[in-house]
């Protein structure tokens, strides 16, 4: 098994705050790897260390086998990094931004124009080639940022919450572009607050307080949930959630869309009875209760508690 990103025992502190605490993580070549964790867990710090924007206090990391600390400029020539914040030039047009980054990475002139055309087609930004970046919508900005990151055909892509503030349609489009890149063999390390995006990755890791808690395939994650889980569908589900929580009879009550997930160590039949009686007292109609497999988010919430 070849790893494209090896992170060994990396630590980083800012003043008295420990951002990364001896973190170890390996990402396989050609893999789409999702990094999820609460705010302040160290996701952004980790990505910035990988591209040399921060220097780790301890530990080391290799990118495609190259030591990221000793040969930073070599590493930077084959990685692409997209920061969380939109960081392109608002007064430059789509094409000008892309050409600028191509030149920064010393893409030969002829090759530059070919790639520009290809990326414009790929990102469907073609019709907006002369539009200034500040006049693009949120989704288009993200695609432009990705295009600029891809102009030097990096082997490894580091994306920091690429779909924050982007509407569902653009988000789906963005992820289908990522899937295509993965198909071309690009290694992708992406952080995300969306659990449905995490589910699209080959493997995911939970990061918390600067450490990796769990690393596994998304389909394997739910088996980490050790309690019984029931999905409740009822009227006034938010009110219902509050009643169930206040009864303190259950391990956890979480709202997922219009359903509730109720977890308990007790057998399902007993929990079901308890739910029904609690809600009956509150005059809330139950539509259905059925046992379900945990979702990634259930595990996420559980791991952090």
């Amino acid at each position: 098994m070849t790893y494209d990103i090896n992170i060994v025992d990396v630590s980083k502190r800012f003043g008295s705050t420990v951002a990364l605490d001896g973190l170890t993580l390996n990402v396989r070549q050609g893999e789409m790897f999702g990094l999820i964790g609460p705010d302040g867990a160290g996701k952004t710090t980790l990505l910035r260390i990988l591209c040399g924007l921060y220097l780790a206090d301890a530990g080391h990391h290799l990118l495609a086998g190259v030591d990221g600390r000793k040969k930073m400029r070599t590493v930077r020539s084959f990685i692409g990094y997209m920061p969380q914040r939109f960081s392109l030039y608002p007064d430059l047009s789509v094409a000008e931004n892309m050409r600028f980054f191509a030149d920064l990475f010393q893409v030969p002139h002829k090759e530059r124009e070919i790639r520009l055309q290809r990326l414009l087609e790929f990102s469907r930004l073609g019709p907006f080639i002369d539009r200034r970046a500040h006049a693009l919508s949120g989704g288009m900005k993200q695609k432009l940022a990705l295009s600029c990151t891809l102009i030097h055909t990096p082997k490894i892509l580091l994306l920091d919450e690429p779909s924050t503030g982007v509407d569902p349609v653009s988000r789906r489009e963005f992820w289908s572009i990522l899937a295509e890149l993965r198909g071309q063999g690009v290694t992708i390390l992406v952080t995300t607050p969306y659990m449905d995006e995490a589910a699209r990755c080959d493997r995911i890791a939970f990061i918390h307080k600067g450490k990796i808690l769990v690393t596994d395939e998304p389909t394997a994650i739910p088996s980490l949930f050790k309690k019984n889980l029931l999905e409740l569908h009822c009227r006034q589900h938010v009110m219902a959630a509050r009643f169930l929580e206040q009864s303190r009879a259950f391990e956890s009550v979480k709202i997922f869309g219009d359903r509730l997930h109720v977890s308990s160590h007790k057998p399902n039949a007993q929990t079901t009875r308890l739910i029904k009686s609690t809600l009956a007292a509150a005059n809330i109609d139950v539509i259905s209760i059925k046992p379900v497999q945990a979702r990634i988010e259930d595990v996420f919430v559980e791991l952090l508690q």
Partner: peptide
């Protein structure tokens, strides 16, 4: 967009 960039627990 009060919850942009905020993790699931904080959102709940």
């Amino acid at each position: 967009e009060p919850t942009g960039g905020v993790d699931p627990i904080s959102r709940h």
